[in-house]
Amino acid sequence: MSDYTSKIKEISERLLKEEKVEIIIGFRKGTVPMMNEPCFVKTPEDVKELVWDSNCGINLANYLTGRKEKIAIIAKGCDSRNIVTHIIENKIKREQLLIIGVPCKGMIDKNKITSMFENEIMEVSEDKENITVKGEGFEKTLNKNDVLQENCKICVHRNPVIYDELAADLIDEQKVDRYEDVRKIEAMSPEEKWSYFDDLLSPCIRCYACRNACPLCYCPTCFVDESMPQWVGKSIDPVDTRTFHLLRAYHCAGRCTDCGACERACPMGIKVRLFTKKLEKDCLELYGWQAGLSLNERPPLDTYRPDDPEDFIK
């Protein structure tokens, strides 16, 4: 990963020196294991802060919304797809952006690794495919592929789809079954489904981290904050919580790139991607659509075909 970091620094420094951009959006080293902090860099001297490793799971497209200056942004596969979506939705202009693409081998799952050890983890380091976890009285090396974030495990767009510079050579894409978990739920009876999601959502504290971590959620007033009419109650009634999650997901229909930002952000470890993945699967099956791959195609809910499937309509 250190070669990624040095290449990113090199490109960033050049862009700033040549005044091609005013600001670089990237990551700096976090203060706790397995966390990096999104940051900006404005001078060539500060470029040294930038890092790249397997803890850069936050989707940086989230930090582009409405910005006015000329920006260089570091983008892995999913980030780049969300940048495409941002451009399509007029949240940023392509001309403003210099995209430093990072072919991504996946981000590691902090919750998963934490839950593997009884004791507190003090330090996590990585070397190619190996993740070394150290804590009081233990040290263990894990295979990175075993501890990837769920969305990274099944990622089929690891290379950036749009970029101006590259931080490393492009890598092979995976061929995987993306929807096994969704199919499992689809096969349940309505009653089972209902209680499955009741259990899934019961820890929710309505902090809205899932919504705010999502680069797609930029409405000036979110539906949960609307008061005339008030669509969703603000207490922790499970019906309100479920409605929030359902509508949050539906707002991402045809736009979600399964970057996993929502799930990563959840302080309670709820698998909120299960909602958006269902929509993603349907968009693919019904309309042959995958979000954020092209600047020239309209997203599925912003267009139609006269012969769209309608066997559910009487």
């Binding site: 902090e37 940051c39 930090y63 902090c207 809205y208 981290a209 971590a213 109650g233 207490s235």
Partner: peptide, 25 residues
């Protein structure tokens, strides 16, 4: 503040944050 996504996680998990909002339902 750059990285902040304005979720309420920090305040909700904080033992010393006491702010509340009153609503009629």
């Amino acid at each position: 503040a750059f990285a902040c996504i304005n979720c309420g996680t920090c305040t909700y998990v904080c033992p010393t944050c006491w702010c509340f909002d009153i609503q009629d339902e």
